[in-house]
Design a protein around this nucleic acid. Structure first.
Length: 581
RNA sequence: GGACUGGUAGUUCAGUUGGUUAGAAUGCCGCCCUGUCACGGCGGAGGUCGCGAGUUCGAGCCUCGUCCAGUCCGCCA
């Protein structure tokens, strides 16, 4: 090693030790006769001192060092006369006797500091410089810790890590596939896996009754702050289990991660059926850090001559504690918020229940004091509260009210970082009707098992069938989800029928799985967690990009290596591909 | 596919109603400074106002188009 110590470990009890440090020049401060240099490596920052009286040549040399030069410095640890309590190494410094420039550096395009002056775009282009910053380093360290602790826990529970292929077969269901041409099989393509779903089920058939993998998955869909075209899952599957066994096992994983990574003891996670989540929060991944659950008042508001209410399929609202004094301006802002096209409400009603007991609403014209009092009672409102009400088509209104609830949560500071409210959402619908294609789609995936008691509904009312499917939600983010799978080939065949697959389609796409199910498939089920999201939530971050070493931007581009990019004509030829742009 | 926001010095941003030579901070360069640690002081360099049209006597500012970035909707079994 070129160094004897790191830049983060020396303390006052190392005084007068002869050490050699290596690192990057964070910053230098010249005082004329004295020069200080902050030397940085992965572990911290240590101050180097050069003294003009003791060694003028060396001091002059130190003065020439630029930001981000890579240097090696040999010298003695000394206790500082002027200590810096803000730094872990602030009690000591190194009186440098030998200095070697290991490499020079151009002036970096932004400052390598916690509060950098560089914008997102620039930092992504120079990601290797951005990663030198402490905040990014911390994020990747947290991610590493989560990864190690996940392995530790699952290993302790007899899960085994098995790799599955990346070059697999395209299927039209679900997300768009990334596709890879096969040179040796002209005109044919591999697909990159959206998840190792079918392979882990085949591993169950193979008898590996507890499997896991921390694995890259690929989906060619439009991106968001919490979505990347390639992302990482903690992918798990178990045999001979019920839903209850899976929830318990992976609640165990979550608790272990909370404890080992964040040092937090978590109580048992609450559970909520999908229908309940939709009724109370209008959303299948509610943020439980605050209340403000929905109160339905469709019947109370209808029949009073107010057309908006009379025409509405669904009317519900939320009670905002202690906000009766909201100004007209604030209420108008909220109205504008719900009327944004992305939220989609056509208006908002309010009732202010003033501290003196008086009521003021936006619909006084249509509702008597008794009517309003009845509504307030339904909400359990007390003087000082504000009630906000949306009306319209059920699904749309639920969604808008859910957005309004979250907006108020943000405005009132109720979504605190550092507070964690996990939740299992269970009993998802098995199928989703698509108006455009006039057919059902699997809400989770086509191998999800219906609840046994709901199987008869497959023939009569498929939309009502509930699945043995579950999601883990933390603070309003879906962190993972899974299901008990179908292991019976007849039920699987029936499922494909409901989804409108012909026998031929099913065999063509999933024949290998159906064949496998002919040879003794055990009852099994599993779950997959979004590893990037989990890291982001634990790290209190906003965007999963901050927890991925080399992420892509929202157009799926890597601006550092400039990909995707064109390929050479010879490559197309070799692949028997012609462009059609 | 759609909505919104932004693009001005190396960087982060300001720039009034369209009007003389486009500013600040920071970074960078030079000089001074022996206890700094966001050091301090003095001085200096640094601009295709994303790109292309248009309106105008005159455009960083107005209009249209386009590219790029970000947030969201659709999409993501």
């Amino acid at each position: 090693m070129l160094r004897t110590h790191t830049c983060g470990e020396l303390r006052v009890n190392n005084t007068s030790l002869e050490v050699t440090l290596c690192g990057w020049v964070q910053r230098s401060r010249e005082m004329g006769g004295l020069t200080f240099i902050d030397l940085r490596d992965r572990y911290g920052i240590t101050q180097l001192v050069f003294n003009m009286e003791k060694n003028p040549a060396l001091c002059a040399e130190a003065g020439k060092l630029g930001r981000e030069y890579v240097i090696k410095a040999k010298g003695k640890v000394a206790e500082r006369s002027n200590k810096n309590p803000k730094m872990p190494t602030g009690d000591i410094e190194i009186n440098v006797e030998e200095l070697t420039v290991l490499n020079t550096s151009k002036v970096p395009p932004f400052t390598i500091e916690d509060n950098t002056d560089g914008g997102e775009e620039l930092r992504m282009k120079y990601r290797y410089l951005d990663l030198r910053r402490q905040t990014n380093k911390k994020n990747l360290e947290l991610r590493h810790k989560l990864s190690i602790e996940t392995r530790n826990y699952l290993n302790s529970q007899d899960f085994i890590d098995i790799e599955t292929p990346y070059l697999i077969k395209s299927t039209p269901e679900g997300a768009r596939d990334f596709v890879v041409p096969s040179r040796m099989n002209p005109g044919q393509f591999y697909a990159l896996p959206q998840s190792p779903q079918t392979f882990k089920q085949l591993l169950m058939v193979a008898g590996f009754d507890r499997y896991f993998q921390i694995v890259r998955c690929f989906r060619d869909e439009d991106l968001r702050a919490d979505r990347q075209p390639e992302f990482t899952q903690i992918d798990c599957e178990m045999s001979f289990v019920t839903q209850e066994d899976i929830l318990n096992t992976f609640e165990g994983l979550a608790k272990h991660l909370f404890k080992s990574v964040l040092n937090m003891e978590m109580a048992d996670f609450p559970r909520m059926a999908y229908d309940e989540a939709m009724r109370l929060y209008g959303c299948d991944k509610p943020d439980l850090r605050f209340g403000m659950t929905f109160t339905g008042i469709t019947l109370l508001m209808k029949g009073k001559g107010f057309k908006v209410a009379d025409d509405a399929e669904f009317i519900a609202g939320i009670k905002v504690d202690g906000c009766a004094e909201y100004s007209r301006k604030q209420l108008d802002e909220l109205t504008d918020y719900v009327k944004r096209p992305q939220v989609g409400a056509s208006g908002m009603m309010y009732i202010r229940y003033a501290a003196d007991g008086s009521m003021k609403s936006s619909v006084d014209k249509f509702y008597s004091a008794d009517d309003l009092a009845a509504i307030l009672k339904q909400f359990g409102a007390v003087p000082g509260d504000l009630v906000l009400i949306l009306a319209g088509a059920e699904e749309k209104t639920q969604k808008a009210l859910s957005e309004l609830r979250l907006e108020l949560g943000r405005r009132l500071g109720l979504m605190k970082t550092g507070e964690f409210k996990p939740l299992w959402v269970t009993d998802f619908p098995l199928l989703e009707w698509d108006e455009e294609t006039k057919r059902f789609y699997a809400k989770h995936h086509p191998f999800t098992s219906p609840k046994p008691e709901d199987i008869p509904l497959l023939d009569t009312d498929p939309a009502k069938v509930r699945a043995n499917a579950y999601d883990l939600v933390i603070n309003g983010t879906e962190i993972g989800g899974g299901s008990i799978r179908i292991h019976n080939k007849d039920l699987q065949r029936r499922m494909f029928e409901v989804l409108g697959f012909t026998e031929e389609d099913a065999v063509n796409q999933f024949g290998f799985l159906m064949n496998a199910f002919e040879y003794g498939a055990p009852p099994h089920g599993g779950i997959a967690f979004g590893f990037d999201r989990w890291s982001t939530i634990f790290g209190g971050g906003e965007s999963i990009r901050d927890f991925i070493a080399f992420p892509k931007n929202n157009s799926g581009r890597d601006v550092m290596i400039d990909s995707p990019s064109a390929i050479k004509e010879e490559q197309f030829k070799e692949l028997s591909i012609k462009l059609n742009l």
